Amino acid sequence: MEIRVGQVVVHYVEHGTGRPVLVLHGAGVDHREAEACFEPVFDGVAGLRRIYPDLPGMGWTIAPETLRSADDVLDTLLNFTDEVIGGAHLLIGHSAGAYYAQAMAARRPAQVAGLALVCPLLPGLRDVPEHRVVAGSGEIGDDVFRSYFVIQTPEMLERYERYVAPAAALVDQAALGRIGERWALTPDHAPAYAGPTVVVAGRQDSTVGYAAAADLVDEYPHASLAVVDDAGHALPHEQPELLRTLLAEWLARVERSS
C-alpha cells in the first residue's frame, strides 16, 4: 500500500485488525526485516493491526530532495501516523527506527499506548564493544552479514539473505547520506514518556552497544530493561523467543494500563 504524506509517498504493509502497532525498521533495510522479526512476536495475539512502513530512502519509499535531515524524516513519520492511524497506537522501533520511535513518543505521548525500543540508536553512544562472533565459524556469508550477526549459523545466514540483503539494492545512498549529515534530531524538552516501555539491547552489539540503552531505564518511569547475552545488533533474528517473551510482557502491561 502507499499513501502520500506531504511530498513523500510512503510504502507500507499491514496485517490484522484492531489496536494499531506501528513498527519502524532500522537503516539500510526496509519493512521486510521488521516484518520478519516482529510478526512472530504477534503470532496468536488477537486484536492488533500491525503496520510496517518503509522509511524514506529505503524500500519503496522515495526520499525527495526536500528531505534533508532526521527532523524531516520524523515529521514524515508523524504525518504518516496521522493519516494511517489517526489515534492511539503502540510503537516499536529497531535501531534507527527506535531513535525515531523515541522522538515520536516524546512529541505525542497521549497517542502512544506503549513504546518498545530494540537495539536503539541513541545520541551519546558509549562503550560500544568490538564485533565478536559468539556462534559459528565466522567464515560464512558476505562482509555485511559477518559484521551484523554475532550468531553466524546457516539459519541466520538464510534469514539475512531472505530478509536483509534484498533491501540493499533499494537503498538510496545519496538520500541517506544527505539525511545523515543532519542525523541528530532537535532536542525535545518535554517530560519523559510515561507509558509502558521496554528497552531491549544486545550485549555484543558492536553497532550501538548496550550502555546508552541501559541508561534509558532511569529516563522512562515505567521501563523494563533487558540486556541480552549472545546477541548483537541483529538481536531480533538471533534471540527471537526471548524477544517474544519480553514483548509479550510489555503487551500485558499495555493492556493493564489501558
Rank of each mutant, 00 (worst) to 15 (best):
M1F: 01
E2M: 13
V5I: 12
H11I: 00
V13K: 14
T17V: 09
G18P: 00
V21I: 05
V23H: 08
H25P: 00
G26M: 03
A27H: 08
H31Y: 13
A34E: 04
E35Q: 13
F42C: 10
G44H: 10
G47D: 09
L48F: 15
I51P: 06
P53Q: 07
P53E: 03
G57R: 08
G59R: 12
G59I: 03
E65G: 12
E65D: 14
L67W: 04
R68A: 15
R68K: 10
S69P: 02
A70Y: 09
D72I: 05
D72Y: 03
V73F: 14
E83C: 07
G87P: 07
S95G: 10
G97T: 08
M104W: 08
A105Y: 08
R107I: 08
P109R: 10
A110S: 09
L115K: 13
L115F: 10
L117Y: 13
V118S: 10
V118F: 02
C119G: 15
L122A: 11
P123H: 10
E130H: 11
V134P: 07
A135P: 01
A135Q: 15
I140T: 12
D142W: 03
D142A: 00
P154A: 06
R159Q: 15
V164D: 14
P166D: 06
P166E: 00
A174M: 12
A175P: 12
L176N: 11
G180Y: 03
W183E: 08
W183K: 14
H189W: 03
Y193N: 09
A194N: 08
V199L: 11
G202Q: 04
G202W: 09
R203F: 11
L216G: 02
Y220R: 04
P221S: 09
A223I: 02
V227T: 01
V228S: 03
V228H: 06
H233W: 07
P236Q: 04
A248P: 00
A248E: 04
E249Y: 00
L251M: 04
A252T: 15
R256W: 09
